[in-house]
Every structure is written in C-alpha cells, then in structure tokens.
C-alpha cells in the first residue's frame, strides 16, 4: 500500500508548508508585538518623549546600514528550503516515478 502513503504525502505536503508559513508569520507578529509593547504603554498625555527618558537600548539600535550590509538570512534560508524541496521532488518524480517503474517506452 505504498501508493496510499505517496498520495497522502502529495496531498498534505502543500498544507504542511502553508501551516509552517502561517505559524512563522504568527511567531514573527508576536515577537514584534513584544518589542513594541513598551512604546505602547507610554502615558498618552506625555506626548513629547524626552530622549534622556528613552530606553538606552532603543537609541543604540537606531543606525543606518548600507545596501550590502543588510543580509536577509531568514529569506535566504526559506529560499534554500524551497530549492531543496523543488530539486528533491523533481529528482523523485523523474528518476523514481517516471523512469524507474516497470515497463518503459523505448
């Protein structure tokens, strides 16, 4: 019954990928929420924020970087994972499913 497992794999792999993306988006959102939450808790009547009262880590984080200094490592990792999935699925589909099964057209 290996065919059943293959079918299940083919059906569920896109869903599991989509689930992974959704989960990572939610994770990212929660992380961002945590980082920005101190700003939100500032008293609304206190409109002018004195630089001396700002969190020193916030002041340090603000710096400009050049084009080449920005390395989207997460995007690179995601693209690498997709690349491996596409390359692996292609090899499986072509060499195992297409060429490797029983009688073949010559």
């Amino acid at each position: 019954m290996s065919g059943t497992y293959e079918t299940l794999f083919l059906i569920y792999s896109p869903y599991s990928q989509a689930l992974g993306i959704v989960v990572s988006c939610l994770f990212e959102r929660v992380k961002r929420g945590r980082m920005s939450s101190p700003e939100e808790t500032v008293d609304p009547t206190d409109q002018q924020v004195d630089p001396d009262r700002m969190d020193p880590t916030d002041q340090q984080m603000e710096r400009k970087i050049t084009h080449d200094e920005f390395d989207p490592k997460g995007t690179l990792a995601l693209i690498m994972i997709y690349f491996l999935i596409v390359a692996g699925m292609w090899a499986f589909m072509y060499f195992v499913e297409f060429l490797g099964r029983g009688p073949t057209v010559v």
């Binding site: 065919g3 297409f98 060429l99 099964r101 029983g102 009688p103 073949t104 057209v105 010559v106």
Partner: peptide, 20 residues
Amino acid sequence: GTNVNTMVIPGQMTEITVEF
C-alpha cells in the same frame, strides 16, 4: 503507474514500443 501512456485516435494507428 508507468510512463507507457498514449492517446488512441480514430483514423490514426498509434505505434508504441514498450520494454518489459
């Protein structure tokens, strides 16, 4: 489950060689 797959068309003789 194999790559042996062809159309069969009225008026056309489909010739397909298969290795078993």
